[in-house]
Amino acid sequence: MDEIAARHHRSRKRAAPAVGRYWAMAMVLVTALAVPLMVSLFQAEAQAQVLPGCTATRVTDPPRQVLDCGNGLLIESEAAAALTAQTPQSGLDLEGRAILIEVSPRESFQVLTPHAIATVRGTQFAVDVDAGVTSVFVVEGSVEVSRRDEPATVLLGPGEGVDVRPGEPLVVREWPQPRVNALLARFGR
């Protein structure tokens, strides 16, 4: 009987480390899956509060957030867009990715990026920020665009866009349809 008990005790000793290893691997896997989910939920919650007084709705195809700020201001931002409010209802800062804005007639609304300032009155337009360039495209209405560090401006009309790069002139161009389609597809259009 002592020999059977001793064998059972030895087999339990060998099994315990294996169970411990599996438990540890399971915990690592759960943590690896849970942390990104918690971070994305935190980011989603943070994005929902971009502008005071706005109501946020999440859209999944493609992933984006729609902010209805009342008074004719509707902002769609890509899921990873980095937005912060300047002051309620007057404008926002965009550090990365793209937004699509629809503004009904109002006093003024601005989008500040690292490279440009886009000021509007009653229009629909997109702003896309990438490393070293801000692109502004007008769907309808008009948008005035300038560099953050220069007073010179250009006025964009429907179908026109400008790429704002440091040290390069602001050149208004009619955007080719494939470029327009690629940008607007990011907002399900």
Rank of each mutant, 00 (worst) to 15 (best):
G70F: 06
L41F: 05
R147Q: 09
L170M: 07
R121A: 08
R173F: 02
S11M: 13
D2S: 04
A44Q: 08
P151L: 11
C54V: 07
T134N: 10
Q110N: 14
V171Q: 11
M25T: 11
A80E: 10
L67M: 12
V164Q: 03
A48C: 01
T87K: 11
T31F: 02
L73Q: 05
R121I: 03
F42L: 05
A16W: 12
L184E: 03
T153V: 13
D149I: 10
Q110H: 12
D128H: 13
V143E: 01
G141T: 00
G157P: 03
R106G: 10
R21M: 12
S77A: 15
T60D: 09
E95A: 14
A131M: 02
A34E: 02
E102G: 15
W175K: 08
A80G: 13
G122H: 03
A126V: 08
H115M: 06
T57Q: 15
A182H: 08
R186T: 07
A98E: 08
I99P: 07
P166F: 02
S40M: 07
L184P: 04
V145D: 00
A80N: 12
R14L: 15
P166W: 00
C69T: 11
L33T: 03
R64E: 15
L37N: 04
Q43G: 00
V30C: 08
L92E: 04
Q124T: 07
E102V: 15
L33E: 01
A81P: 09
P158L: 13
R97H: 14
I117D: 07
E174L: 06
T60L: 05
H115Q: 14
A16H: 04
T60C: 00
H8A: 15
G96E: 05
S77E: 08
G132I: 05
Q49P: 02
P63R: 05
Q124H: 00
S90K: 14
T55N: 04
L92N: 09
H115A: 09
A6K: 13
R97M: 03
A16F: 07
I75L: 10
G72R: 11
F125G: 07
M27C: 10
P17S: 09
E102H: 15
F187A: 01
R97N: 12
G20S: 14
R106M: 11
H9E: 12
A16P: 02
V35I: 15
P36Y: 10
T87V: 08
I101G: 06
V172D: 02
P178C: 02
A82N: 11
E3S: 14
T134S: 15
P158M: 13
L112Y: 10
T153M: 12
T57L: 11
A182D: 13
G91L: 02
V136N: 06
A85E: 15
A152Q: 13
D163E: 11
R58E: 10
S104Y: 06
V139R: 12
A48V: 00
S77P: 00
S135A: 14
